[in-house]
Nucleic acid binder design. Structure first.
Length: 254
DNA sequence: ATGGTTGCTTAGCAA
C-alpha cells in the first residue's frame, strides 16, 4: 500500500501534473493540501477517470485539503470542527482500507510573534486535542500533510539562516514534538536520509541550490509505523514546467 | 539588500 502527501499549490494549476504523477506512481491514497478551490470547483470528474475517489474540504482562494483514494473513503469529517468562527479549510479525515487518514495543512505562521504565528501555535494545540480526545490512537492512523515545520537540524539545508523563521524556530520544533507526543511517529525522520527536503522556495534559485526544508510529513501510530517499509520524496516533481514549490512524499506499507 | 516567484484575482495578499 502506497500513501502520499503533496502540497500542490492550487489543484487547478497543478491538475495536468497531478494526473501524470498518479499514472506514474499509482498511489493508493494521496493527501493533498493548498487546493485553493471550493469543493464545487474541485476536478472530481478528471480524478474519477484516473481511478480515484475524492473527499474534499475546500475554500475559495486559500487553503483547502483533500484525500484521494482508490477505495471509497468512509466516515469523512471536514475541518478541525471545534470552533464555528474558524472557517479555514485545513483538515479532512477519512477511513480508507481500515486506516484513519488525516490530510492537514498547518498554518504557515508568517513571522514569529505575529497574529498568524499565534494562530499556527493554537491550531497545532487544537489538532493535538482532536487526536487525543476523538481518535482511537490504538487503531492504524496516519496524519499526513504540510506542517510548515522542519523538525530537526537535519531537515534544513542551512539551519542558521532559518533559525528565526516560523518554519524552523525552536518553539515550532518543540510544538511539533508535542504533537508527536500524542503517540505518532515521523516516518520521514527515521526512513529518510539527513538532508532530504520536500519544499524549496520559488525565489532565489532555491531548488537549483538545494536550499530546501523538510516540511511535509507522514505521522503514524506505532503499529502502522511497524508496517512501513520505505519513505521517499519525489524530487522530480519539483523540476520542469510549472511545479508546485513542494514535492510529494510517499510511504509504502505492507 | 525586507529583495526574489507563483497563484488567485486583477492590486495586493499569502506563501
Amino acid at each position: 500500500m502506497l500513501i502520499a502527501t503533496w502540497n500542490v499549490n492550487s489543484i487547478r494549476a497543478r491538475l495536468p501534473r497531478l494526473l501524470a504523477w498518479l499514472q506514474k506512481r499509482q498511489p493508493d491514497v494521496v493527501c493533498l493540501q493548498e487546493l485553493k478551490v471550493e469543493e464545487a470547483a474541485f476536478p472530481f470528474a478528471e480524478l474519477a477517470a484516473a481511478g480515484y475517489h475524492a473527499a474534499v474540504c475546500g475554500q475559495k482562494t486559500w487553503h483547502g485539503v483533500a484525500i484521494l483514494a482508490r477505495s471509497e473513503p468512509r466516515a469523512v469529517r471536514r475541518g478541525l470542527d471545534d470552533d464555528p468562527h474558524d472557517s479555514q479549510a485545513r483538515l479532512i479525515a477519512a477511513t480508507v482500507d481500515g486506516i484513519r487518514i488525516f490530510s492537514a495543512y498547518v498554518p504557515n505562521g508568517s513571522t514569529v510573534g505575529s497574529d498568524k504565528y499565534l494562530y499556527k501555535r493554537g491550531w497545532l494545540t487544537r489538532l493535538g486535542r482532536r487526536l487525543r480526545l476523538q481518535e482511537d490512537l490504538g487503531q492504524p492512523l496516519l496524519l499526513a500533510g504540510d506542517f510548515n515545520i522542519a523538525p530537526q537540524e537535519r531537515d534544513v539545508h542551512n539551519p542558521r539562516q532559518w533559525e528565526d523563521s516560523v518554519l524552523y524556530h525552536p518553539q515550532m520544533r518543540q510544538d511539533f514534538q508535542e504533537l508527536l507526543a500524542c503517540g505518532l511517529i515521523d516516518l520521514g525522520g527515521s526512513h529518510l536520509p539527513a538532508g532530504t527536503y520536500s519544499w524549496w522556495d520559488y525565489r532565489q534559485l532555491s531548488f537549483p541550490r538545494n536550499d530546501g526544508l523538510r516540511l511535509d510529513h507522514l505521522l503514524a501510530t506505532p503499529m502502522l509505523t511497524s508496517r512501513c517499509t520505505e519513505v521517499l520524496v519525489d524530487r522530480d516533481e519539483r523540476k520542469g514546467d510549472t511545479p508546485s514549490d513542494h514535492a510529494p512524499v510517499l510511504a509504502r506499507f505492507f
